[in-house]
Amino acid sequence: MAKLIDVSDLNIYYGSFLAVEDVSMTIEPRAVTALIGPSGCGKSTFLRSLNRMHEVIPDARVEGKVVMDGQDLYDKDVDPVSVRQHIGMVFQRPNPFPTMSIYDNVAAGVRLNAKRMRKKDMDDLVESSLRGANLWNEVKDRLDKPGMGLSGGQQQRLCIARAIAIRPSVLLMDEPCSALDPISTLAVEDLIAELKNEYTIVIVTHNMQQAARVSDQTGFFNLAAIGKPGRLIELDSTSTIFSNPSQKATEDYISGRFG
């Protein structure tokens, strides 16, 4: 079910401000693609444009093509809501629904779309999703407790369970570990390594070691100056980017000379 995404000539705007310019890349299925770069270079903006979350912000718009499965996601007839059912997302800060229990949080994607499901099927879905997120053993005895009662790392894995419960093909992660302590970070990184067997994963991270640890290919974003649009400088296998990048800017960034 993992899918390949082909991005071509993508320009992303906030109103009249061009935030990301002319990005073309291929995101491989069953692999982890990491996006790195200095703050404000547009990597999160780019990530959000992949499942049309970008346009939730007023006046934000996109030009260019994002093709998955032969279908351009920005085609006029495409329903953005349906896009998001295929391409799930995990956010920077864990955001479980505060009014719902752990169980309901995982079931939310199905329930909020008013799909009916037998109790037994739902139980199975919740269990498999929580197992998939490496959280089942920690919460199986308190599924009816509020999701907000978990630790930060557990909350983030709960959000991952919630995202995979709707069986997406692609999982986007926007700095999923930046609000977590090192131990929780490790747990989430382990999880990412397992998830890539089933999903296409794109992860934005500030942490270069993390990109080196979890990803198969890495894209480096940069911007010429403040107020200028961000661009994709290069995309290559992670080992190449970190050992032998073709661009000077990438090397400078990797070796810590700026950013």
Binding site: L73, D77, V78, S82, V83, S169
Partner: peptide, 13 residues
């Protein structure tokens, strides 16, 4: 109503 995992396609129209 029930999307078959893996085979569903993105809705248009």
């Amino acid at each position: 109503p029930e999307r078959d995992p893996g085979r569903g396609s993105i809705a248009t129209g």
